[in-house]
Amino acid sequence: MAMDTTKLHLPRTVATAVINKVADTSTIAALSPASPQIFTDKEFMIFNGKSEADVTAEGQKKSSYEQDLSFVAGKRFKVQTTTRVTSELKWADEDNRLAIIESIQNDQAKAIGRALDYVVYHAVNPKTGARIDGFDALCDQCEQVTAGDDDITNVDALADALNDTYDINGIAMSKVWASRLRKLRVPATGMRFYPEIPLNLQPGSLDGITAATSGTVNGRLAAEPTNVLAIMGDFSLIQWGMVRDITAEVIPYGDPDQSGVDLKANNQIAYRTEAMFGYAILDPKGFAVLKEAGE
């Protein structure tokens, strides 16, 4: 009888394949540069220049104007993500260079970045999809534009809601709306109306202004649909930064996620990534949001 490989104890190896699904990113981080933040109750003093030159005749009494100052209080929030693995998985990863733990931590860091959009745009906890008490969503405070059937007109309607008062320097788009814009064609020639939107829906610009696309714009993880298609405005009006930088730690003991399962008793360890953000929206009216008409 011929000998076959089922009778042999062959050494085993594992090949790790990381599937790079499209990951949502923070559009705020892409459109508004971060500024340093510290752990303090920070207020931003807002100066809106109101002066206009007064033409005066010779000997005429000179006029003056009143200048008001307003204040905006900053907000802080901590975000974290915790992943449990078995101790054996950690050993296999270390001995065989499977890169599983590295992939977990990279995935956690991306989730931390996405949380900034969810909190600022929607006041939503991305883990649960629920609204966060004590936070105001930018999409509820800014200029509201209801989407019509013509998406070219929708782009213009967003700009018209702001152009008379504010400078527009960016647009954050949902992937749904970016896909719709990419498919628009000029009737006479068949050319794409917005050729700057590629197949991966990640344009660097749209109609001359900086653009970013993400599922965070429409709040894909929100428990209740937001109906948001895009947010346009002066993104320098969002002041944000890290109060504490992203940190990663290994937790070998206890019950870090309050699941009722002790790590050590079950041969598990946990990997946790966390950070603290600080942000303030200096003027919500410097933004316009495009929303689908509610049912």
Rank of each mutant, 00 (worst) to 15 (best):
L69Q: 12
F71D: 03
V85K: 11
A109S: 07
S51V: 09
A159D: 08
V243T: 06
A280K: 08
L69R: 11
E292G: 03
G278K: 08
T25N: 03
A222T: 05
A111C: 05
R272A: 02
L206V: 07
I168Q: 07
Q67K: 09
I19R: 01
I28H: 04
V250G: 06
W177V: 04
N154E: 04
A270S: 04
P33M: 11
P195I: 07
V79L: 05
A92T: 05
V250N: 15
L290P: 00
S259N: 12
E196T: 08
Q60V: 03
L158W: 03
E58I: 11
A293Y: 14
G134A: 05
I209H: 00
T226Q: 03
F135C: 07
P252Q: 11
S63G: 02
A99S: 14
T6S: 14
M191N: 14
P126G: 03
G129L: 14
G59K: 10
V261S: 06
I28M: 04
Q268C: 01
S236C: 08
A188M: 10
E196Q: 12
R192M: 07
I28C: 03
Q239Y: 10
F71V: 15
R114A: 15
R114K: 09
T16E: 13
L89A: 02
L10D: 00
T128N: 02
G59H: 14
T216K: 03
N227E: 13
K127D: 13
L10R: 00
A172V: 08
D245M: 13
V217R: 03
N200I: 12
I101Y: 12
F39K: 05
D150G: 02
A230H: 03
G208P: 06
T216V: 06
T210K: 06
I281D: 00
Q108H: 15
M276A: 09
R185W: 05
M1R: 08
G241Y: 10
A211K: 04
I28R: 01
G294E: 07
N20P: 02
K75S: 10
K50C: 04
T128G: 03
S51R: 11
R114N: 14
D245S: 08
Q258R: 09
Y166I: 11
G49P: 15
H122W: 12
E52A: 07
R76E: 06
A157Q: 15
E43D: 02
A222P: 04
V55S: 06
L184F: 02
A211F: 06
I46S: 09
A15E: 15
D136L: 13
V120D: 02
V119I: 09
K285A: 05
R182G: 01
R12W: 11
W91F: 10
I238G: 01
N154Y: 03
A29V: 15
A2T: 13
G49I: 02
M191W: 10
W240G: 00
A15G: 05
T82S: 08
L282F: 02
S32M: 05
C139D: 01
